[in-house]
C-alpha cells in the first residue's frame, strides 16, 4: 500500500472516500458525544428545545451520584472489579479453547469433522430464553450458584470464538506446520509455539469481542448471583436506570464510566489486529 503514485485521479478518489468514511464516523460518534455531554448535564438540559451541546454548568455531581449509587452504597467499584474478574477469566479460557478447536477444525482432517463443526455452530443458534431454565438447573446441580465460578464456567468458550479462529486459521500456511512436523516438533508444541503466537490479530479481535460480550452479560449474572458482593456492572446499570424519577444525566455518567475499561482495552489491543500478522507478511506468495 505504500508505493502509490499520487495521481490527480487518485487524489479525488481519496477525497471522496474520506468524506464517506467521515460520514460513518459522524453517525457513530454523535450519540457518544451526546452521551459525553449529557453526562455533565441535568435532565432538564438534556431534553431542552433547542438542545445545546455545551453543558452549563458542568454537573460533576452526576459522576458522584454515579459512583456512589442511589443509596450511597458505593457498590460501583466492587461491581467493576467483579466484571473484570469474570470477563477477564472468560476471555483467557475462550482464547485457549477456541484456539484449540479452531485449529483442530481447520488444519486437520478427520471423519465427522463437518459434523462436529455444524454441531458446535448450532450451539450459538438457540435463544437464551429457551435454555435459561435448564442451564439454571445444571448450575444448581453443579453447585455453581452465587459464586465466581458460576459466572465463569458456563461461558468457558463460545461457538462464535471457535468459528472466528477456524476461519482465520484456514488461511494459515499449511507448509509451516508440515515443516515443523518434519523438524520433529510435537503437535502441542506446534500449537503453542507456532500457531498461537502467529495468530495475534485474530486472538486480539477475539479477546475484545469476548471481553465485551461478557462485560455486557445481564441475564445470566442476574439469575445466578443473589449476593450483592458478586454483582456485575450491567446489573448496576439496570438498577440505576430503574429509578422512579428520571436522572438521565447521572445515568449517562454511569454509562461513560462503565464503558471506559472496554475502550481502554480496545485501544490497547488494537495495535495487534491492524496490519496483519507477520506470518502473512513474510510469505513470498
Amino acid at each position: 500500500m505504500s508505493s502509490e503514485i499520487k495521481s490527480p485521479v487518485y487524489k479525488i478518489y481519496k477525497f471522496l472516500i474520506t468524506i464517506l468514511l467521515v460520514l460513518l464516523v459522524l453517525l457513530t460518534v454523535t450519540p457518544l458525544v451526546f452521551m459525553l455531554c449529557a453526562s455533565f448535564m441535568t435532565s432538564k438540559q438534556i431534553l431542552a428545545i433547542p438542545f445545546s451541546w455545551i453543558p452549563k454548568p458542568f454537573q460533576f455531581k452526576n459522576f458522584y451520584n454515579a459512583v456512589a449509587g442511589t443509596l450511597h452504597t458505593w457498590t460501583f467499584p466492587r461491581n467493576m472489579l467483579n466484571s473484570f474478574i469474570v470477563s477477564g477469566t472468560v476471555t483467557l479460557t475462550t482464547l485457549l479453547l477456541a484456539g484449540m478447536s479452531g485449529y483442530g477444525l481447520s488444519k486437520f482432517r478427520f471423519k465427522g469433522k463437518n459434523f462436529v463443526f455444524i454441531t458446535i455452530m448450532s450451539t450459538m443458534m438457540i435463544p437464551f430464553e429457551a435454555i435459561m431454565i435448564p442451564m439454571y438447573m445444571i448450575a444448581q446441580k453443579l453447585n455453581l450458584m452465587n459464586s465466581y465460578r458460576g459466572l465463569i464456567i458456563p461461558y468457558l468458550v463460545s461457538a462464535f470464538g471457535i468459528f472466528q479462529m477456524r476461519q482465520y486459521l484456514l488461511t494459515f500456511p499449511g507448509e509451516f506446520l508440515d515443516a515443523a512436523r518434519v523438524d520433529g516438533m510435537g503437535e502441542l508444541g506446534i500449537f503453542f509455539k507456532l500457531v498461537m503466537p502467529n495468530s495475534a490479530p485474530v486472538l486480539a479481535t477475539l479477546a475484545i469481542t469476548t471481553f465485551r460480550s461478557q462485560w455486557d452479560n445481564l441475564l445470566w449474572p442476574l439469575l445466578v448471583t443473589q449476593n450483592a458482593k458478586l454483582k456485575t456492572v450491567p446489573l448496576y446499570i439496570t438498577s440505576f436506570s430503574e429509578e422512579k424519577h428520571a436522572d438521565e444525566g447521572a445515568l449517562m455518567a454511569v454509562a461513560l464510566l462503565a464503558s471506559l475499561p472496554m475502550l481502554i482495552a480496545f485501544f490497547a489491543l488494537s495495535k495487534y489486529f491492524i496490519g496483519g500478522s507477520e506470518v502473512y507478511e513474510s510469505r513470498k506468495g
Binding site: M132, I133, Y136, L222, L223, Q226, N227, A228, L235, T238, S239, E242
Partner: peptide, 14 residues
C-alpha cells in the same frame, strides 16, 4: 436479596 424490579418476574419464575 434485592433484585431489579423489571427483572423480578423472570428471576423468581426461573
Amino acid at each position: 436479596t434485592v433484585v431489579p424490579t423489571k427483572k423480578r418476574a423472570e428471576l423468581i419464575q426461573t
